[in-house]
Design a protein around this nucleic acid. Structure first.
Lengths: 342, 342
DNA sequence: CTGTTAGCGCCTTCAT
DNA sequence: ATGAAGGCGCTAACAG
């Protein structure tokens, strides 16, 4: 007849509060929830006792009883240390906080298996919903149908093969404009340091680059194109290789902030100047002594919009059932001209 | 007699799986938990059915039954968008993942009230433990005693008035060394752009600066000291003010990355060069054309160590009860010399 | 307005 | 090796 022994004593419960007041647990419950059907004096007496005893409602029990963890959403990104994702996370958090909901954050390190594990785990926790920046173009495991029905919103990438809302950046046009600007400045041999074609951002940003080249009557030369994962060291290597070509590019487009940083490190020591346009803004870009322009956008907004869509689904009581939604975050090219010497 | 109606259907339960197999729910439970007392063929039959039905254990129910959310720790920082905190978060996540535990992340924006709300909320969720980067020197609400006994570890700041483990950076020595280096290079009028004295980092880093000055026989002149919150704009303003002094400083120490960025923005346009040494490393510092040194340390390590301490407490079954632990993360000064022109 | 009843899904305990 | 009973803390539904 010994009670199950939780590792930590479970503490004061509603019944304890109720007992000390000679009322029922329901009365305490009502007072705490702010339920209307309770006399004001009773409510105050209960709240006072709650305070006195240091009682705190067990949300675990409540959420369990209610049927789902309405107060928790999941956020799965590739790497929280990348400023893009940490800003995105801030945006998500901002909106979630407004809804009184917590954010369970996890990084996949770009590994699909890890992503699978994480979303499964979150579904097991009965989170209210899930925002995912997919690590690949394989989205089968992100279908709400397999995740206890938890709504899913993809960020930075539109869904493939599943029917969920998404928010992504205007990758194509952003890159197109950046490239067009370089062309407008007289560049003809423009290199591209990109992400794998298997990633949405990889293919879209490449498309933008290629389209701008083509529209200007310039050929895309494969030796000026490198498509690798977004590591600084890989970007450095690719930049080095391109600079060593017989006719090196006079300008580079980098497909994300990691590539931009890698390219900058190498270009810094290049004897002849190479113009650089990179996707993603970079802090302190204004202080670098290099001709640089960036495709900027509000990363926090990606998170905010994703969260907005997600809460739309979570709170959708099944009546409206709008179709798949898609939000595209605009970009703008920012020019950080090389300052005058002195 | 209608069942309570959860907003989302709660889905397949253990009983459903059991029913289809003609066994009891306990058998399913045992199979899923990998409990030993179960026949191998039974186990396999159960797991197959689980797979077939797409059943996923309801962790909410399990954690509730078990008494606490063993699989969730909280992380409260001031602002996740600051690279220091996002790296710290990555470190925490890394260790938590190894323990099969999720991380609930939230930002306080430096507001004490928000911090209070957040830790209360997390305690209500019966999280297994809590890592906090305090927004102020008021730590009363971070006492585990008031948080359902959840262990707490402070990061970046040692506790005041409560008895919990902590991890912080060697703020004093880091700043001391950076300042000594500037002095060694002949600087005598060295300014300090810092954080409020009410913050641990604010006072310690100032102490390091002041001690280095004093040890070198240099006076600390109040007009060369500004102690404000760590905003870029405030740092810019303070830098501008100091440069406008009749005898402006020839070097500056900045107490965190936000101050460093602010100072850099202004120094960039200063006619006479001002040396800068800043606490916190900065990405691309190597590419700035300014004489800069930084006090660097591994921010992810702060998170890792904090998580390590936390899990030590969580898994401490009450037998060992070691005293308060304290980990100090070492710093090193990195020099980014102004490169040669060309 | 307040109390009683019952049960969410799972796991501990004890019985078989 | 498996099953039956019971309850974690809370709240929906109904009763008074």
């Amino acid at each position: 007849m010994t009670k199950p022994k939780p590792d930590r004593p479970s503490g004061v419960t509603m019944r304890d509060v109720a007992a000390r007041l000679g009322v029922s647990a329901m009365t305490v419950s009502r007072a705490i929830r702010g339920d209307s059907g309770i006399a004001e004096p009773t409510r105050l007496r209960v709240l006072a006792e709650v305070e006195a005893l240091g009682y705190r409602r067990n949300d675990l029990a409540r959420q369990f009883r209610t049927g789902s963890a309405h107060e928790l959403v999941g956020l799965v990104v590739t790497n929280l240390a990348n400023p893009f994702y940490s800003q995105l996370a801030v945006g998500v958090e901002e909106v979630a906080t407004r809804h009184g909901v917590g954010v369970l954050v996890a990084s996949t390190n770009g590994e699909l298996d890890r992503e699978r594990e994480l979303v499964m785990d979150m579904a097991g926790r009965r989170i209210a919903g899930l925002i995912v920046v997919p690590a690949s173009n394989d989205h089968g495991h992100l279908d709400p149908a397999g995740l206890e029905g938890a709504p899913v919103v993809l960020a930075a990438t539109p869904p493939r093969g599943i029917d969920v809302d998404c928010v992504f950046v205007d990758d194509f046009n952003g890159t197109y404009e950046a490239c067009r600007q370089l062309i407008g400045r007289g560049h003809e041999r423009i290199g591209f340091l990109g992400l794998p074609a298997s990633l949405w951002t990889g293919s879209e940003r490449y498309r933008g680059y290629a389209a701008a080249m083509e529209d200007a009557g310039l050929a895309v030369d494969e030796q000026y194109v490198s498509r690798h994962r977004g590591d600084i060291s890989l970007a450095e290597e690719a930049t080095r290789r391109m600079l060593a070509l017989p006719a090196p590019p006079t300008a580079l487009i980098t497909a994300n902030n990691r590539n931009t940083v890698g390219a900058l490190r190498i270009l810094r020591h290049s004897p002849n100047p190479v113009a650089l346009a990179g996707f993603d803004d970079i802090e302190l870009a204004d202080l670098l002594q290099l001709p640089l322009s960036v495709v900027a956008y509000d990363a926090a907004d990606v998170g905010r919009e994703a969260a907005r869509l997600l809460f739309g689904r979570i709170e959708d009581t099944g009546v409206t059932k709008v179709g798949r939604q898609q939000v595209i975050i605009p970009t703008r090219v920012i020019d950080y001209p090389r300052p005058e010497r002195g």
